[in-house]
């Protein structure tokens, strides 16, 4: 049987695009959408995949990453599905892509105005840990009552004397909506602020779409005396490439038992190594 272009039927894609436009019109607001069945299970990136499928046109170039890697099983399979059903070219080079689907990272290369970054979101509701009812969280958003989100950070300071939220650190969008930015590391939070590209966030299981249009003010929640800080990688050096100040994975050398660091964004690392022409 012949598959429809981009797997989903045209009306489903249209619906997703309309909801995306609404999300762009209200930055940081969670727009409900009719999440479709896909050949992968919900919770495995179906929100991001539906956004990508609804947006992929024939002139697009797609890049898919999973925690910074172009080559993990998840990234490869999602990329294959997109390619098999649309035939659009793929790339690992962030600059060359027009459509980037990502799980848990924003690439090190800043977004360009012609690019769309699609993030896969498991839990789009920043207030869910303090309020289980959707009906109530909707009212809290309407009232701009975000003490629950702050309370979580406060409780961490009480328990550990610092904010321990490492990923999915809540942000305030344009001074109005508090948004969960998907489990990107805190390190990536400042990249969302006033950025050149469009960022879309899709939660397939929770059936929500969120958007950050270009040049949106995105501020990480913080207290006056406990300011927001990103993880520092200034004093660690990537063992493969010699890069520093980028987001690193901490790994253990199985032979020597020694701890070493490696750049998490693999395509960025590869580009840097090719540019220098030297592999250490």
């Amino acid at each position: 049987m012949r598959q429809n272009y981009a797997f989903l039927d045209e009306n489903s894609k249209k619906e997703i695009r309309r909801k995306t436009l609404k999300a762009i019109a209200i930055p940081g607001y969670q727009v409900p959408f009719a999440s479709r069945e896909l050949p992968i299970a919900r919770g495995w990136g179906t929100g991001g995949l539906q956004l990508t499928l609804s947006l992929a046109g024939q002139s697009d170039t797609v890049k898919v990453i999973d925690q910074g890697s172009d080559e993990s099983v998840n990234a490869v399979n999602i990329r294959k599905l997109i390619q098999d059903t649309t035939g659009v070219p793929d790339t690992i080079h962030t600059d060359a892509a027009t459509l980037i689907q990502s799980r848990h990272r924003i690439p090190e290369v800043p977004l360009k105005p012609y690019q769309i970054l699609v993030l896969q979101v498991p839990m789009p509701e920043p207030l869910r840990p303090v309020e289980p009812q959707e009906r109530v969280t909707k009212m809290l958003h309407a009232d701009k009552e975000y003490s629950g989100a702050w309370l979580r950070l406060f409780e961490q300071i009480m328990n550990y004397d610092s904010i321990t939220e490492d990923a999915d650190y809540p942000v305030l969008v344009e001074g109005r909506y508090v948004m969960a930015p998907s489990p990107i590391p805190r390190f990536d939070n400042p990249k969302m602020d006033n950025n050149d590209g469009l960022i879309l966030l899709g939660a397939g299981r929770e059936k929500k779409i969120c958007a950050l249009p270009p040049y949106t003010k995105v501020k990480s929640l913080a207290f006056e005396d406990y300011p927001f800080e990103v993880e520092s990688f200034d004093d660690v050096i990537c063992r493969q490439s010699g890069l520093t100040g980028v987001y690193m994975d901490e790994l253990i050398d199985e032979e020597t038992g020694e701890t070493y660091y490696q750049t998490n964004d693999t395509s960025y690392m590869q580009e840097a190594m090719n540019r220098e022409g030297s592999v250490k």
Binding site: W150, L151, I157
Partner: peptide, 27 residues
């Protein structure tokens, strides 16, 4: 009250809601 948050955080919740953003003042 939020029964599973510390007593201090419960008090801070009211202060946060009233606009305070300073941990030292709230504690």
């Amino acid at each position: 009250l939020k029964m599973d948050f510390s007593s201090m955080s419960n008090i801070a919740e009211k202060l946060i809601a009233a606009g305070s953003r300073n941990v030292g003042e709230m504690t």
